[in-house]
Amino acid sequence: MLSAHCVSTTSGVILDVDRAFCTLVQRNERSLIGASYKTITLPDDIAKSSKMLRSMTARGAPSTLQKRYRRPDGTVAHASLLVTMARERDRLLATVTWERCPAEDASPFGLWRAALRLQRLYETRRQEFGEELFGDHLGVILLEVYLAEAEGRIATQATISNAASVSAPMVGRWIKVLCQYGLLQADRDLTDVIHLSHAGLMKIERTLRAFDGEPAQGMITLPREM
């Protein structure tokens, strides 16, 4: 079960949202602040949402609601709301909960989000434990190539070294090993663009699904030291 929060006026104008809410409706914070709830609510659910707002204004008691949000890609998110009146009588706080959808996790967008979460985990591990205890340069390099391709960027030895905070010589050695294992594609002197192979892409995606809580087979297993 996932949860998010949204603050709005009693007329339904959105004042504040957290990152989880942005993820749920697949919109950024800037596009949500100042917008009406009607712009993100499935048309069939607008009437009951309006009724709930009128009830909250009249009684001030907490209310619950099952509703559906429409996303920019045409998909629909089903959610449960617990709405309470804030101390300021014209402010409503909605706690939104929903079930994770396996189909969304398996989509390119879901895998990209999982890759960003894994990247943040790597960065946190580095900060907390230091470079000497980090040791997962293989994962960092593969993840950076994956993110570069997902975001339309070019991955080279230099860009990977800079993004992964790993020395260029070490990146070069790992790239050659990963090419030998059939996970990356690169020219011999590493001067051209570096790509994931089909096998590398499949293994990265299975790893990301497992990181997001799904069981997976065929994950990446390579020697930890060179």
Rank of each mutant, 00 (worst) to 15 (best):
Cys6Trp: 05
Leu15Asp: 13
Val17Lys: 04
Arg19Ala: 11
Arg19Met: 06
Val25Arg: 01
Arg27Asp: 05
Ser31Asp: 15
Ile33His: 09
Ile33Asp: 11
Ile33Leu: 15
Thr39Ile: 10
Ile40Cys: 09
Thr41Ile: 08
Pro43Met: 03
Pro43Leu: 04
Ser49Ile: 05
Ser49His: 05
Arg54His: 07
Ala58Gly: 00
Gln66Asn: 14
Tyr69Ser: 06
Asp73Pro: 03
Gly74Gln: 09
Ala77Met: 05
His78Ala: 09
Ser80Leu: 07
Ala86Trp: 07
Glu88Trp: 13
Glu99Val: 08
Asp105Leu: 09
Ala106His: 11
Ser107Lys: 04
Pro108Trp: 03
Pro108Arg: 01
Arg113His: 04
Arg125Met: 04
Phe129Asp: 14
Glu132Cys: 04
Gly139Asp: 04
Val140Cys: 06
Leu143Asn: 03
Glu144Asp: 12
Val145Ile: 15
Ala150Val: 09
Gly152Met: 03
Ser165Leu: 11
Val166Ile: 15
Val171Pro: 08
Gly172Leu: 02
Trp174Val: 06
Trp174Asn: 13
Lys176Arg: 15
Gln180His: 12
Leu183Tyr: 11
Leu183Phe: 12
Arg188Gln: 10
Asp192Met: 07
Ile194Ser: 08
Leu196Asn: 07
His198Glu: 14
Ala199His: 10
Lys203Thr: 12
Glu205Val: 06
Arg206Pro: 00
Arg209His: 11
Phe211Cys: 06
Asp212Phe: 06
Asp212Ala: 15
Gly213Arg: 02
Pro215Asn: 10
Ala216Gly: 15
Pro223Ala: 14
Met226Gln: 13
